[in-house]
Design a protein around this nucleic acid. Structure first.
Lengths: 152, 152
DNA sequence: GGTATACTGGATATAAAGGTCCAGATATCC
DNA sequence: GGATATCTGGACCTTTATATCCAGTATACC
């Protein structure tokens, strides 16, 4: 019913865009990049990226600077930014907090289903909480990752 | 950018509907239930559930019977149906198979990002592959789960 | 101060997911 | 064989996520 032709990820397209932008900025901490520069490098539609960056600024993850020489800049060290924070800034991972069916007449087994679904959600939430942007950066001293192998 | 007010799950709304229906049918294997009955019990919009059931029939998970006394029926034992099969029937979990940016000029760090995202996806895919509908059913011999506690 | 650069925020457009409706096809019962 | 029950499939509507556009504002340079 849903082809998911474009997105192709468990997180929203917007969430992915936000992560791409933050990772890109993290590659040169201290240097400001414009929306256009980030857009080209990360292949995110410029006009939409503009909205995404605004959300990241509001969340305090990124600092903006207008005018000539302006652009966007991380406010913190990449090692201190969890992937989850970035996702939360634009599109939080939805947890199942109450039974979607209501309590009255719902079967106990459907309850077990939602427990399982939320457990799975909690698992990836934990992964994203414990992984930082810094973890994704390839340092010069480290070996080159299997980039070609895992993509082609 | 996305409130996700309704769905509230890491899988699509449609995927959740499909799971609810299958779990419901699994509670009484061998008995046919109509769209209306399933709809009421699982609180899935009837007209839409009709579409979801069609997909489950096409996938071979469910058998349909028209006319008086008809309805839907599981084709297999609940213990042999993985959650992943149900999701695949309506809305497969999207894996990241190739770099969303293309290879040429993309940063190696964005590659690491997608690797991480796909790893997380693979994790929940595995959970859903190894959990069966039967696992969600509460047998009479088992104790009552913490249904009220985890929902209200 | 004028000009060019760049973010901000609101309005609007497009695409996809979710949802409805109904005529048609089968099946059962009497 | 008529009446009723039920799934099927196509057309259509609604809502949400994604994406675009542009006027406004702040900043830097000369």
């Amino acid at each position: 019913m849903n082809t998911r032709g474009e997105n192709g990820s468990i997180i929203s397209q917007t969430g992915e865009y936000a992560l791409r932008a933050i990772v890109f900025l993290a590659m040169d901490p201290g240097i400001a990049y414009t929306t256009l520069q980030i857009s080209v490098a990360t292949k995110v539609p410029g006009a939409y990226l503009s909205k995404v960056m605004q959300a990241l600024v509001r969340a305090g993850l990124v600092q903006s600077q207008r005018g000539f020489g302006g652009g966007f800049l991380l406010t913190r060290s990449p090692d201190s930014i969890a992937l989850l924070e970035v996702l939360d800034a634009v599109d939080p991972i939805p947890r199942i907090r109450s039974c979607p069916l209501g309590l009255e007449s719902h079967g106990i087994n459907l309850c077990a289903l939602h427990k399982k679904l939320d457990d799975a959600t909690a698992t990836i939430e934990t992964v994203f909480r414990e992984t930082t942007i810094g973890d994704l950066l390839v340092r010069p001293t480290q070996s080159i990752p299997l980039c070609n192998a895992s993509q082609q």
